[in-house]
Design a binder for these strands. Sequence first.
DNA 1: TAGTCATATTAGCATATACTAAAGCCACAC
DNA 2: GTGTGGCTTTAGTATATGCTAATATGACTA
Lengths: 230, 230
Amino acid sequence: MPPGMTAQEPSLTRSVEDYLKAIYRLSAQGGFATTSDIAGLLTLSAPSVSAMVKRLSEMGLIEHVPYRGVQLTSQGRRAALKMIRRHRVLELYLTRNLSYDWGNVHNEAERLEHAVSDDLIERMAAALGDPHYDPHGDPIPTATGDIEETELVSLADAAVGADLELRQVGTQDAARLRYFAEQGLVPGVRVSITERQPFNGPTTVYLYASATSRIIGRELAQLLWCREAQ
Amino acid sequence: MPPGMTAQEPSLTRSVEDYLKAIYRLSAQGGFATTSDIAGLLTLSAPSVSAMVKRLSEMGLIEHVPYRGVQLTSQGRRAALKMIRRHRVLELYLTRNLSYDWGNVHNEAERLEHAVSDDLIERMAAALGDPHYDPHGDPIPTATGDIEETELVSLADAAVGADLELRQVGTQDAARLRYFAEQGLVPGVRVSITERQPFNGPTTVYLYASATSRIIGRELAQLLWCREAQ
DNA sequence: TAGTCATATTAGCATATACTAAAGCCACAC
DNA sequence: GTGTGGCTTTAGTATATGCTAATATGACTA
C-alpha cells in the first residue's frame, strides 16, 4: 500500500457486524468468547457460529483457538467499536431528536447501525455536540475507536429495578463457576434485579434470555460484576 | 382473518424492495416493465431478474406475462409506495436536519430506507410538519399509499443542466419508438441536459446508464416527457 | 412466409448464512 | 487414570440471491 493511503476497510455484512459486536461484549474482560456464548447471545445454533467463526478467522477479524473460543484481532476490535459507536450515537440521537424512549430505541438502532454511513453518524454526533455517553450512560467510543472503560457494580450492591448486563465473574473457583454457568449466569447475559431481602439477604434477578428468575445469596452475588445494560 | 385485524405485511428483503421500486418506476405509465429494463435499472443480469420475477410473482407482488413483462399487483404497489415514501421522507429529513445536500442524500436514503421502521418514518415526517414534497420536488406518498401524480416536462423544453428521468414517450409510431430504444431513451433512464442549440435546435443529453451523450432534434425531443430526477 | 436477431428463460453453478444430526474432543469426577 | 457428559466441530442440507452459458421465443425484415 502506498504511503499516505489508509487501509480500505472492506464493508462487512450485517451478520458479520453482529458477530463482532457479540464477541466484543463477551470477551471485554480479556477472556475468550466461546461458541455457545456467542450462539446464546445471538440466538443462533452452535454449528452456525462454528462456521462463521471459521470465516471471521480467515478474514483476520478474530483469533480462534479450537475448542477454546475466540478473541478479536485489532482489526476486529476496531470494527466492533465502530458498530458500538454507531449504535450509541443512534440511540442518543433518536432519544434526543425524535422522542424515542429508552425502551423503544434499542431495536431501531440495532437495525440502523448496519445501514448508516460513517458520514451520517458523524453528522448526528456533531448535531448532539459530540457526546461521550449514550442514553443509558454507556460510553460512546470515539470515531478513532477509543472507549472509556465502564465501571462495574456487583449484583449484591446494584439497585433493585436495575437492568444489568453481567460482565465478569469474580472468582476462579471451579465449583462456583460451574454453578453460575448452570444458572445461566455467564458474562453477556442481561438481568433485571427484581427484589432483595433485607439484612444482607439474597438478591432475586430475572434473566431475559430464559425468561426465568434466580435467587442468589449475598456471597455469590458479590462475585457477579455487572454494568448498566446497553 | 378475524374482523378488525389488519393484514400482517410480511417483511420483505432488501432485494425485493429494490425490485418493487424499480418496477414501480418503469411501469408508472401503466405499461409493462420488461426484464431487461429492470436489469438495466438495477444493474443486474437479465437471468437474475427472470428468477426474481418468478419469486415475486409467486409471492403475489407482481403479475408476470412471459416474454412481455410485469406489472405490480395492488399489494406490490402498496409495498413500492411505502419504500418511495420512506426514501423521500428520509431525503427531506437528512437535507433539512442534518445538512445533507441534494447530491449526497440519495445514496444515504437508498440504504436507510430498507432499515428504518414505519414508526421512525412517521416520527421524521411529523418532525418535518408532514411534508408533501421531497427536496427534489417529487411528491411524497402518504402513509396510506396515495401519491400525487407528477407533472412532466418535454425534453425540448426542460432547462439546460436539468437532471431528468424519462417517464413517458409521447408517440405510438413504431419507427420512432424503435429509434428511441436503440438510443437508450426508454422510460426510467436518467439523463442530464448538457446543451441546446438556439433557434429550436437540437438538445444534447448525457445518459448516466451508458455514460454516453445523444443529440436529439426538436421534433423527437418534444416526444420525450421527463420529470426532475429523484 | 421464412429467417434472423434481440429478448427472455432455463440450466448449472457460486456465495453467504442458517439449520439438524452425527461425530469429535476435553476436562471433571470418581 | 479412565470414563462420561457437555461443548465444539463436521457433514449434509436449505434458502435467497447473484452470475455465465445455453436454449427458447417472438417479432421485424426481406
